[in-house]
Simulated scan of single mutants.
Amino acid sequence: MPRPDALRTPAERFVNLPDFPWQPHYIEGLAGYEGLRMARIDEGPEEADHVFLCLHGQPSWSFLYRHMIPVFLETGARVVAPDLFGFGRSDKPVDDAAYTFTFHRQSLIALIEALELRHITLVCQDWGGLLGLTIPPDMGDRFDRLLVMNTVLGLGGGSTEGFDAWRRFHGDHPDYDMPALFRSYIPGISDDAAAAYVAPFPDPSYRAGVRRFPFLVMTEPDMEGVDVSRRAARWWASEWRGDSFMAMGERDVLIPPRLMRRMHEILGIKRPPLCLPEAGHFVQETHGGHVARAALAAWGEG
């Protein structure tokens, strides 16, 4: 059982998910998160040469990576795709105020340390990047490569019209129809896949993390996480020695191409981005396999 201030989604909610055959692995007692259980997909050999650490955003969960995981596994790598607390199969504190930038960032650091992950390829998008891109500066010896999709570092420099609309929507409709949202952002997504995104949330009491995340994005200079994000930006530009690959969904209204081009500069990526004219924000959902194969080919593994 989870601790009294958290919920745990019943396992039967995750039966027969489309194209998602992997069974969850659980870890309890992460340092600083006693009483909470974190779920992850963890496939491939522990002793693999590469570990793909796939970090999702909001309002998704590790299900988002189902088209990329098989491509990574074909190389003999290990793939670890955690569900952030409040999402997927992980425990969900019920108090909106429990969700902060530091709460999530430190949980990922604790997971990396607990699993003793090394030779990591960081794969990130949305909040997976807002959080994940700040971690290698504190444990750079564990990271070898970066595969980044539509995301930013939260540098406190303002917002976009699309993101402002996203934030207002969450404020006005905190318990919105999630499958309908995915259908609107991902034209052509199947009804089964759209429904799978809401599987972790049987009722609104499970959705504190979903409600809170849009208001944590660091659009103002005094917000929590700005300092560590600015430090990360300096580190990526001057100290990162690994190999990086960017894929960019050009129809993204939340993080438009101009911001991704700026991220390309901030991260010091040498090779041109893979531009996807038909992709929106959820690149993994529509072009995941293609992006995974393109990154591997760029790294000489295709």
Rank of each mutant, 00 (worst) to 15 (best):
F245Y: 14
S60I: 01
H67I: 00
D192S: 15
P137I: 14
L115R: 04
L130N: 05
A279L: 02
I255Y: 03
A279M: 08
H67Q: 13
Q23T: 12
H281L: 00
D222Y: 11
V253Y: 01
F143E: 08
M246C: 09
L216A: 06
F20T: 00
Y206M: 08
L181E: 03
P93K: 09
G128T: 05
S159P: 01
G209I: 11
P45M: 05
F63E: 12
A292Y: 11
R3F: 00
G156Q: 07
D175R: 06
Y33T: 01
L147V: 14
L296A: 07
V94K: 15
L147P: 00
Q284W: 09
E34F: 06
Q58H: 10
Y99S: 08
M248N: 08
P179G: 07
I255E: 09
D175T: 05
A6W: 13
S107R: 09
F245V: 12
T102C: 04
A247G: 08
S60P: 07
G76K: 06
W61G: 02
P214A: 06
C54F: 04
D5Y: 02
F282L: 05
S244E: 03
A194P: 12
K270W: 12
Q125S: 05
G188Y: 10
Y99Q: 12
E285N: 03
F282S: 03
F87A: 12
L108W: 09
A11E: 15
H173Y: 12
V79S: 15
I186C: 11
E113L: 06
L130V: 05
A193E: 15
L276A: 08
L133N: 03
I112V: 11
R168G: 00
L108N: 12
F213W: 11
P2S: 14
R167S: 11
